[in-house]
Amino acid sequence: MLQELLTAAAAAGSAGVLYVASAARIVKQYERGVVLRLGRLAGEVRQPGFTMIVPVVDRLHKVNMQIVTMPVPAQEGITRDNVTVRVDAVVYFKVVDAAYALIRVEDYKFAVSQMAQTSLRSIIGKSDLDDLLSNREKLNQGLELMIDSPAIGWGVQIDRVEIKDVSLPETMKRSMARQAEADRERRARVINADAERQASKVLAEAAREMSETPAALQLRLLQTVVAVAAEKNSTLVLPFPVELLRFLENPQRVPPDRTLERPTDM
């Protein structure tokens, strides 16, 4: 009798150990457990740590709650100003409701990826090329709102969306390079013209000062000679004083010959 009791106890213990082994589950810190009992959601979402389920009847699905970094494949489209571009982006998102992410959508990662690609193509068609190149922060916010609106119903929250790169055709790159070069050349010409204008004003003031003091012109001539001679040149060029030309400004003109008119015989 005692032996039978010990055998029954051993069998019950073995069955209990087998039951615990098959029912015991470990949920990691960054995961949440969703239990489906006979195909239906059972109870609350299981928190990290040790948990038990009913073998055969329950199915524990673990959902990762970490932030997922998902690259969006490059999408080709035409901007609002009729420029063909290829734009790729990256989406950062996380699951905030494990039950919704498991039940309401078949594959939440694939759904977010497809929504991101569709939204990216839509953003390309609504934006100008200058916005894609220089106003990315505003486009990132708009893209985030477009993806986040349907993702809320899937238990997913979009943390951030970033446009990585904008690829342009080679012809467009060459056109933009020529435009930038022409703009730099225009600015250089404007700067040179402004410098000439300022220099002409200063030279005009210097000329007025020298005209009041003739000796200043002679001193300036001597300074020029010294500057030229300092270069160790074998040929020395002396400027011709302009004052000497003033005598030729109003040359005396010979009056034209006049034919003496003879009186008409009456």
Rank of each mutant, 00 (worst) to 15 (best):
Q141M: 01
S113E: 13
S175F: 05
Q47R: 15
I158K: 03
V166K: 08
V20G: 04
R59W: 02
G43P: 06
L236Q: 05
P73L: 01
R208Y: 11
P255M: 12
E196Q: 15
I67G: 00
A229L: 11
P169R: 10
V91C: 13
V242A: 11
S127M: 06
V35N: 06
H61D: 01
I147G: 03
D130K: 08
V27C: 06
E31L: 03
E162G: 00
Q198F: 02
L2W: 14
D81I: 10
P55I: 13
K126W: 05
D97M: 03
S149F: 09
P48V: 09
T259N: 03
R262S: 10
K201I: 11
L38T: 07
R258G: 07
A199S: 09
D183T: 10
P255Q: 11
R246G: 06
R32Y: 09
D265A: 05
G142D: 13
Q114L: 11
L245P: 00
S211N: 08
G33P: 06
K126F: 04
R253A: 08
A227L: 11
Q179E: 14
E106N: 07
I78E: 08
M115F: 06
K201S: 06
R186T: 07
T224R: 08
E144D: 01
T69W: 03
E4N: 14
L60H: 06
L18C: 10
T118H: 06
P241H: 08
L5E: 03
K94L: 01
L260V: 15
E205L: 12
Y92R: 14
V68E: 07
G142A: 11
Q157L: 03
V96K: 01
T69F: 03
R121V: 04
Y100T: 05
D194C: 01
L38Q: 11
G155R: 01
F50N: 01
I53D: 09
L143P: 01
N64F: 07
L221W: 15
R258P: 00
P73K: 02
D131Y: 05
R258S: 12
L133R: 10
D159Q: 12
V87W: 08
E162H: 05
Q252P: 02
L38P: 00
M146T: 12
D159Y: 09
P169L: 09
L219Q: 09
E185F: 09
Q117E: 14
L60F: 03
D130M: 05
A207I: 02
A151P: 01
P71L: 02
S122Y: 10
S200P: 00
F240V: 15
